[in-house]
Amino acid sequence: MTGEPTLRLQDVDRDEALLEAVAELHGDTRADFLRTAVIGSGVLLAALAAPPAASAAVSDTQILTFGLRFERLQASFYTEADRVGTVGKMDPRKQRWAEVLGEHERAHVRIIKKILGRKAGKRPFFDFHGVTESEDSFTRTTVAMEDLTVALLAGVTPRVHDRRLTAALFGLLTTEARHAAWARNIVNSTPAVRSFDEPRSLSDVSRTVAHTHFIAAAPKMTRKRRKPGFTG
């Protein structure tokens, strides 16, 4: 995608419901800062910035493209936590949980990549700002991320056009819901809080992901290693 316009987050920020989730992750000041931060955008974000009537026409490819971006984010998150040794230091029950979730998210990346084929695009660079480096921040972020995935899939599943994809997304939705419940049980939080999981729109979730700044504009260089760590 070339010549893409630069959007400010507030341009796609129609309501502030998700700032609460962001505040949980990073605190109010960061959320305030991000609201006016300038973010790069592509066709998808341009579509998201369109009025709701137009966003109803989001294509299956756009949904899958965002899904891939999100699954890559998750896969990299677990891989990174393992690589920096956080997973290895956890007790066996938690270790198993983190390993299985990581492997599932990597499988989801492979599946969506195959479906999208050449439309899959390049993997973005991720920077988790040290969140993967302590068990506490890793597990808490995981709970938030898995719950967010459930909400995303509950939101996009009714919006896809290809019925084969609808069927497939149901099988992913339940897996992500299992992850969320498992993660919650791991941190002694009720695994099923409500009778119905509330859906979130693609633009909502996109905004939350942007708020975390986990998707970086450029590879992160560190003193320890000269190339960015990534997977997927």
Partner: peptide, 24 residues
């Protein structure tokens, strides 16, 4: 999604793998 949460929760309590597959 809620049914799947229940399934994972009771499996975890019963000592079974809460999420046995990458896609159900």
């Amino acid at each position: 999604a809620v049914e799947a949460r229940h399934a994972a929760w009771i499996r975890d309590l019963a000592g079974e793998d809460p999420a046995p597959r990458a896609a159900d």
